[in-house]
Write a protein that binds this DNA or RNA. Structure first.
Lengths: 184, 184
DNA sequence: AAATTTATGTCAGTCATGTTGACATATCTT
DNA sequence: AAGATATGTCAACATGACTGACATAAATTT
């Protein structure tokens, strides 16, 4: 049936050396393993939520907004734009739906009445909890046979994969700039 | 400045318990840390390639196709569909561009002349190497201070995050299903 | 007080990438 | 010869990105 050549790597690995210009260009030095594991792990990780979201008529964009609004109550629209790295227009459509359908409420800022601070409603909280539950189940399973040192290494690795130049508000909170300890 | 309430978690965490139905529904049991680290880590991980791809007039879809064609020479179209989990039409557009612009070539299968086996050209290999170089640099940096046991834990974690029911050809290769006949 | 900047919202149009369903062709299998 | 399979292509559509322009209210600066 499947007569694919599954020898790993290109037919002529040596042809790589001269082509690229970035520091790691020789095929032998590439972290193909981690690159591909990240692809598949993330694909299935978000797949959990994707499937559930269909029942709500929502997409990934809605999930991301709901998640961060729930997790960081009182988030401003501008902060959300920084975190999600999308444009105002893209966010606007999704946010409007979530507001209209009662998953999120806005409150005018106390200090600055131009701001619309965002909060999840109980309905919104339930959705986030449901999705996070699915993802937590997968994570818990994946961590099952890993000892505390291993878990620490995983956490350290993921943190070190994140850009730290010009972090947004949420990242500052995650990395505990203000001595706030992430729940762990 | 930013007068956001950055207390962690929802205003009323206890409201979660009754709402959800999946195993992990109580807010205190959620792996918010890993969930968010995965989001940011993957965002920045793929961001490396995204930026570079603009110069080629390509998007993420092109990268994914090029990557797997380069890594698994002789991949069939059907295998690529399994791996990427997209439809024939979506793949078709992207694949046609890569063929037209000389990044990929097709060869008719020897055993089965209906098959179009895909191979990266030197031009395609150079592109993959460049993008993988950027991502490898990030990974290498993130693994810098992690000992071999930690790296093993990271690898194990990522593998365990991946669905193993009905794995595709590439996953079978990654997980080293050693027998001659992985699927029938 | 007036002018400017900021935070947000919205409109119009475009693009990339995904979808479904139908259908055509060549080739392999029965 | 008939049917199944691998691939390619068509039309139509959905989502979620984008740019650029513009409007409003509120804060800030002059």
């Amino acid at each position: 049936m499947t007569d694919i050549n599954f020898s790993r790597g290109p037919a002529d690995p040596d042809s790589q050396g001269a082509a690229g210009t970035s520091p790691a260009t020789r095929a032998g030095e590439m972290r193909w393993d981690i690159i591909e594991l990240l692809f598949f792990a993330y694909r299935d990780f978000v797949g959990d939520a994707d499937h559930e979201l269909e029942a709500f008529g929502f997409g990934r964009a809605h999930h991301r907004v709901m998640h961060f609004v729930y997790r960081y109550p009182g988030l401003k629209v501008a902060d959300l734009l920084d975190v999600l790295r999308i444009t105002k227009q893209s966010l606007g459509r999704v946010l409007k739906q979530l507001l209209d359908e009662g998953y999120i409420v806005q409150k005018t800022g106390n200090n600055d009445r131009r701001q619309r601070l965002l909060y999840a409603t109980p309905k919104g909280e339930a959705l986030v909890a449901k999705l996070a539950g699915l993802q937590t189940d997968r994570i818990t399973h994946a961590l099952r046979d890993i000892n505390p040192e291993g878990v620490a290494a995983i956490s350290q690795f993921l943190r070190a994969m994140i850009d730290r130049d010009d972090p947004d508000k949420v990242l500052e909170a995650i990395f505990g700039i203000g001595s706030k300890k992430p729940r762990e």
